[in-house]
Amino acid sequence: MAEACLRERGHAAADADDAAAAGAIVARHAVRSLYQELALYPKPGLVSLVDTGSHDDMDASTFVRSLFSLRRYFLDIALAGTRRSGFETLRRLGIEAERRMLLATGGINTHRGAIFSLGLLCAAAGRAASSSWQPEVLRATLADCWGEALAGHRGPAASNGALVRSRHAAPGAREQAAAGFPAIFELALPTLRRTLAAGRGLRCARIDTLFTLMAGLSDTNVYHRGGAAGARIVRDTSLRFLERGGTAAGDWEEDAVAAHRRFVAHRLSPGGAADLLAATCFVHSLATEGAP
């Protein structure tokens, strides 16, 4: 019996070590995906390493401080997934992560959307670590484990997202999550894969993915800043870019820079699309590089 107990303890310790190792991989991919989104340029209206886009209250260094403050969060929420934690636990971790983010940035919201969307995907990766990190498994795990809770979840009534939903009937991050992130798995990821398959590399793949998200997403950040007219500018500009072939067009970079200037002139910032671009980078890199 003593030997059996020792074996059980050994298995438990090994399982804990495996979970910690898997969680560290997940967290590393999450932080890297946020940096990949930040480093991308041209990125219409958004903060990058080149300029501050449509923002005068934040720059790249603000984002770097923010993403470093979130490293522990992504590990903790991945481990929460491993432990089969309920949605309330994930929500509490997200609230604490937001507190640390605001402390690191001096009160500036840099990654609130990513805390929600990328955090949920990290939890799904933690839960699925013993089987697979393929996109279809992550999506199914998210829906099976927390889909019902997400469908019933209501954020603060006075939040920008809630006000936009009320005013413009535009679905936001909560609706995306409850539906299993169709913008990631049905729009963004197929676009990223097609551009890579065409041989145009990761930078072009991320640009095409961002424009696909801007064309197809009801972005509450855009509605908050520019209303329905601003949302039309973002959608129409993005569709034109894609209809011309996206990064397959010879002058795509000039076209993307022109879109950037147009968004800045109208003070438009598609932050929701940026969050889901980072989440798409995470799903892709975890599936291709990070199998447990």
Rank of each mutant, 00 (worst) to 15 (best):
I25C: 10
S269D: 14
A39D: 14
D255V: 11
V234E: 01
G230T: 00
G227P: 10
G201F: 05
T280D: 00
L79A: 03
R9T: 04
D57F: 01
A177E: 09
E289C: 00
F185Y: 13
A80L: 02
L192G: 03
F74E: 12
L138Y: 02
E8P: 00
H266F: 06
A287N: 02
S131K: 10
R232V: 00
W133I: 03
C145A: 12
K43C: 07
G81H: 14
A273C: 05
P135M: 01
S130T: 14
W252A: 01
A27M: 00
L75N: 13
L210I: 08
A183F: 03
E148D: 10
L70S: 14
S130M: 10
A114K: 12
Y73W: 05
R9W: 11
V47R: 04
R71A: 13
M214T: 07
L102M: 05
C122Y: 08
R83Y: 04
I25P: 04
R244N: 10
T247P: 13
A278D: 05
A258L: 12
R261I: 12
A291Q: 15
G161L: 08
S269G: 15
L192F: 02
D76Y: 14
A104H: 09
E98A: 02
E136Q: 05
H260P: 15
F116L: 04
S131F: 04
I233L: 04
P135K: 03
G107K: 02
D275F: 10
L90C: 06
A287C: 01
A291H: 11
G216A: 11
W133P: 07
P42M: 12
L40T: 03
A30H: 07
N109F: 09
K43I: 07
L242W: 04
N109P: 09
G245A: 05
R65L: 09
F63P: 13
V283P: 07
S66I: 03
Q36S: 08
D251E: 06
L70Q: 14
V50D: 07
G161V: 03
I95G: 07
A287H: 01
A179W: 12
A205S: 01
I207P: 00
A162W: 10
V234K: 02
D208S: 00
R194D: 07
E289S: 01
D251K: 09
R193L: 15
D236H: 10
L67Y: 11
A215H: 06
S117Y: 08
V164R: 05
L268V: 13
R127W: 08
A258S: 14
L163M: 11
G161H: 10
S238K: 14
V26D: 06
M1T: 05
S117M: 08
D236R: 04
R193M: 15
L286N: 08
G23V: 00
G119F: 09
A197S: 04
R174T: 13
R100L: 14
T195N: 02
R193D: 15
R240I: 03
D56F: 03
A30D: 05
L242R: 09
L187G: 10
L286P: 09
W146P: 12
R7M: 10
M58D: 08
A125P: 13
H153D: 12
E253Q: 15
L189R: 06
L118C: 08
E88M: 09
T141R: 05
G10R: 05
G94P: 05
K43R: 11
R71L: 05
R139Q: 13
L150C: 04
A248V: 04
H260Q: 11
A2I: 02
A140N: 15
S238E: 06
A179C: 11
S130C: 09
